[in-house]
Simulated assay, not measured.
Amino acid sequence: MIMTMHDDEEYLFRALKVGASGYLLKNAYDEEMLEAIRAVYGGGIYIHPSVAPALVREFLTKNEVDEKINSYELLSKREQEILPLIALGYGNKEIAEKLFVSVKTVEAHKTSIMHKLGFEKRTDLVHYAIKKKFD
């Protein structure tokens, strides 16, 4: 299937998600349409060059998020216990009380979590935890 659409990233992503193998803009020339049809018919893909950068950006962003989600497995058991509590808004003292450890221990684990996941700010850690969807 080849889609002819607008120069809008959202249309591109939707088309690809539903199985499009080609993407042209509405104002594509006849030669370009033939090129796209040949490419797709031959088992390949065709993406209009003006929307290709958006596709690459989306791929790289998704890849980065997936890597961080997968890096959750690098966390120790205790770090995996602490992360959802951080996401729920508990402070270091509250987390320490819940887990029967010292505040310094919580701070050390939080620093380790941020290092392992590549975050610099607590807010990044909270956003990550929300995306991870802890129960």
Rank of each mutant, 00 (worst) to 15 (best):
residue 1 M to E: 14
residue 4 T to A: 06
residue 4 T to I: 00
residue 4 T to E: 08
residue 7 D to T: 01
residue 8 D to I: 15
residue 8 D to N: 15
residue 9 E to R: 10
residue 9 E to W: 05
residue 10 E to A: 03
residue 16 L to I: 15
residue 17 K to C: 06
residue 18 V to R: 04
residue 19 G to T: 11
residue 19 G to E: 01
residue 19 G to V: 04
residue 20 A to P: 00
residue 22 G to L: 10
residue 22 G to R: 06
residue 22 G to W: 08
residue 29 Y to L: 03
residue 30 D to Q: 06
residue 30 D to K: 09
residue 32 E to N: 02
residue 34 L to Y: 04
residue 35 E to M: 08
residue 35 E to C: 02
residue 37 I to L: 02
residue 38 R to Q: 05
residue 40 V to L: 11
residue 41 Y to P: 07
residue 41 Y to V: 03
residue 44 G to V: 06
residue 44 G to L: 14
residue 45 I to S: 14
residue 47 I to V: 00
residue 48 H to E: 00
residue 50 S to M: 12
residue 51 V to S: 08
residue 52 A to R: 09
residue 52 A to N: 07
residue 54 A to V: 01
residue 54 A to H: 14
residue 55 L to M: 15
residue 55 L to C: 03
residue 57 R to T: 14
residue 57 R to P: 05
residue 57 R to E: 15
residue 58 E to M: 09
residue 58 E to N: 14
residue 59 F to A: 13
residue 59 F to Q: 11
residue 59 F to I: 08
residue 60 L to D: 09
residue 60 L to S: 02
residue 60 L to A: 13
residue 61 T to L: 10
residue 61 T to W: 10
residue 63 N to F: 13
residue 64 E to H: 09
residue 65 V to H: 00
residue 65 V to P: 01
residue 69 I to C: 02
residue 70 N to I: 01
residue 70 N to A: 12
residue 71 S to V: 02
residue 72 Y to V: 00
residue 73 E to A: 05
residue 73 E to I: 13
residue 73 E to K: 11
residue 74 L to Q: 02
residue 75 L to F: 04
residue 76 S to Q: 06
residue 78 R to S: 03
residue 79 E to L: 06
residue 80 Q to P: 06
residue 82 I to C: 05
residue 83 L to P: 01
residue 85 L to Q: 02
residue 85 L to K: 06
residue 85 L to M: 12
residue 90 Y to G: 05
residue 91 G to L: 00
residue 94 E to A: 04
residue 97 E to G: 05
residue 97 E to T: 09
residue 99 L to R: 12
residue 99 L to D: 06
residue 99 L to F: 13
residue 100 F to D: 12
residue 100 F to M: 13
residue 102 S to Q: 15
residue 103 V to E: 09
residue 106 V to T: 04
residue 107 E to W: 06
residue 108 A to K: 12
residue 110 K to N: 07
residue 111 T to D: 02
residue 115 H to D: 14
residue 115 H to K: 15
residue 115 H to I: 07
residue 115 H to T: 12
residue 117 L to W: 04
residue 117 L to S: 07
residue 118 G to F: 04
residue 119 F to V: 09
residue 121 K to Y: 12
residue 121 K to H: 11
residue 122 R to S: 07
residue 122 R to V: 14
residue 122 R to L: 14
residue 124 D to G: 03
residue 124 D to R: 05
residue 125 L to E: 06
residue 127 H to Q: 08
residue 128 Y to A: 05
residue 130 I to N: 12
residue 131 K to H: 11
residue 131 K to N: 12
residue 132 K to R: 15
residue 134 F to S: 00
residue 135 D to W: 13
